[in-house]
Design a protein around this nucleic acid. Structure first.
Length: 296
DNA sequence: TGTATTTGACCTTG
DNA sequence: CAAGGTCAAATACA
């Protein structure tokens, strides 16, 4: 199993997260050793490490901001604005159901139309040709829409430049009690077809820094901060904690689904990772502030 | 036979 | 009015 996770088509996003995770750990150590017997030397050493890692993170952030594909640049500004929630390359702003919106970019090596089993069972209810896009957009709603009134929907669209890549937009919150089923879905119990999680690559457009996710995400000890703990509920699943079938060894031709918090666009209490990256263009001091918030 | 998908029509929004 | 989003009848599939 090989896991390819990415913020912008490279490995920079995860590297930054790994670095930030490292910083957080160092800060924790710093707090522990403050006032201790050898605190001065130790704290100096830790502070110096924090400083150098922070600088590395800054350069990483800066570099993959420059690496942004044109399509993403076209899309991203709208994602950062509450007033504009048009997905992908659209020119029209349209109000869609619910306030919650997350976008992830997912790749399917299997080549199917449904790129990822995200732990929920979805029912397709429409498909539409989108102006300016080479591929139609598929519309999915939660299978439990009628039985439990679950309002979650998602939109899946192949990217223009890479047919194996999908942009997936999650809209609305899952209110269904599908938690148990979601766990089973990783083993193929709930999703009747297109369950390709044995052959998947997930590329992350960005991440939201949510308190509960920070803890799981940054506090993890797995490589690149992959969260292997089960999601705490339907909501957490919906927020993009993709199911992880098994942490098996990497092989060149297979991937597994990666848990990762996708962009959360609407939500006052959260800020997106891309906002952090935007801040990098406005000076290091601002960025440090953002990173501080990130770690807070 | 029940459930999921397809697809054209209709609705909503800017 | 154009384009995105949803509905629902027809169809496919297990």
């Amino acid at each position: 199993m090989e896991t390819v996770v990415d913020a912008n088509g490279g490995s920079g996003g995860w590297l930054v997260v790994a670095e930030l995770s490292h910083i957080k750990e160092l800060v924790r150590q710093l707090e522990v050793h403050l006032g201790g017997p050898q605190s001065q030397e130790l704290c100096k050493h830790l502070a110096s490490q924090i400083s150098s890692i922070t600088e590395r993170s800054i350069s990483l952030i800066t570099s993959f901001r420059l690496d942004w594909p044109a399509a993403d640049v076209a899309t991203t500004p709208s994602l950062l604005s509450d007033a504009s929630d048009a997905p992908f390359k659209t020119t029209k702003k349209r109000k869609t159901m619910g306030n919650k919106r997350h976008q992830v970019r997912v790749s399917s090596a299997g080549g199917g139309d449904n790129p990822v089993d995200d732990g929920h069972s979805w029912r397709k209810y429409g498909q539409k040709e989108i102006l300016g896009a080479k591929h139609p957009r598929g519309y999915y709603r939660c299978t439990h829409r009628h039985s439990q009134g679950c309002a979650a929907t998602k939109q899946v669209q192949r990217t223009d430049d890479d047919p194996t890549l999908f942009d997936v937009v999650y809209l609305g919150e899952h209110t269904c009690a599908q938690r148990a089923a979601a766990g089973q879905a990783a083993t193929g119990a709930q999703v009747p077809e297109h369950n390709q999680d044995a052959n998947l690559t997930v590329k992350i457009e960005g991440l939201a820094v949510e308190p509960e996710l920070q803890q799981g995400f940054l506090g993890t000890t797995t490589p690149f901060g992959l969260v292997s703990t089960p999601a705490s509920g339907c909501l957490a699943q919906e927020r993009g904690l993709f199911s992880v079938p098994s942490p098996s060894p990497a092989t060149p031709d297979s991937n597994h689904v990666v848990p990762f918090p996708p962009i959360e666009v609407a939500g006052d209490e959260h800020f997106g990772f891309e906002e952090v990256m935007s801040a990098s263009g406005e000076g290091v001091e601002d960025l440090d502030l953002y990173i501080s918030s990130f770690l807070a």
